[in-house]
């Protein structure tokens, strides 16, 4: 449960794509599961809303980083599962290293300034 009086932390731009790519690395998931996984893994700090999750997924489908295929959910319902493609994997590597570089740079500035 998100803490009621804590302001919701903003995700830096582009981070959502990176997180989606990362959680899909270990296997295919449906949309809700992606949101849940990010929520839980971030110790319930990050909440992914429908309004940003699905546009991001559509964009990734368009770019060809993920593909969608039919599967059965834990509630026995037919639903789309997203799976990382080869280009998606490459994209993930690129985004991770890019992210590392940027955070490191920001950290350096914060430490030394």
């Amino acid at each position: 449960m998100p803490m009621p009086f804590m302001p919701k932390p903003d995700m830096p731009p582009g981070a959502l794509t990176l997180l989606i790519l990362r959680v899909l690395q270990s296997g295919s998931l449906h949309g809700y599961a992606i949101a849940q996984r990010i929520h839980i893994l971030s110790s319930e700090v990050l909440a992914v809303e429908e309004g940003s999750l699905y546009p991001a997924l559509q964009k990734m489908l368009l770019k060809g980083w993920v593909t969608a295929e039919w599967g059965i959910s834990e509630t026995n319902r037919k639903v789309r599962f997203y799976r990382l493609t080869a280009t998606g994997r490459k994209q993930l590597q690129a985004e991770i290293s890019n992210y590392d570089r940027v955070t490191e740079a920001i950290q350096t500035v914060l430490r030394t300034a």
């Binding site: 949309g31 809700y32 429908e50 699905y54 969608a68 509630t75 639903v79 789309r80």
Partner: peptide
Amino acid sequence: ELQNEMEFHREMAAR
């Protein structure tokens, strides 16, 4: 498909 998917999302969220 998108509509279907988002409905599912809401069901799960409600649950």
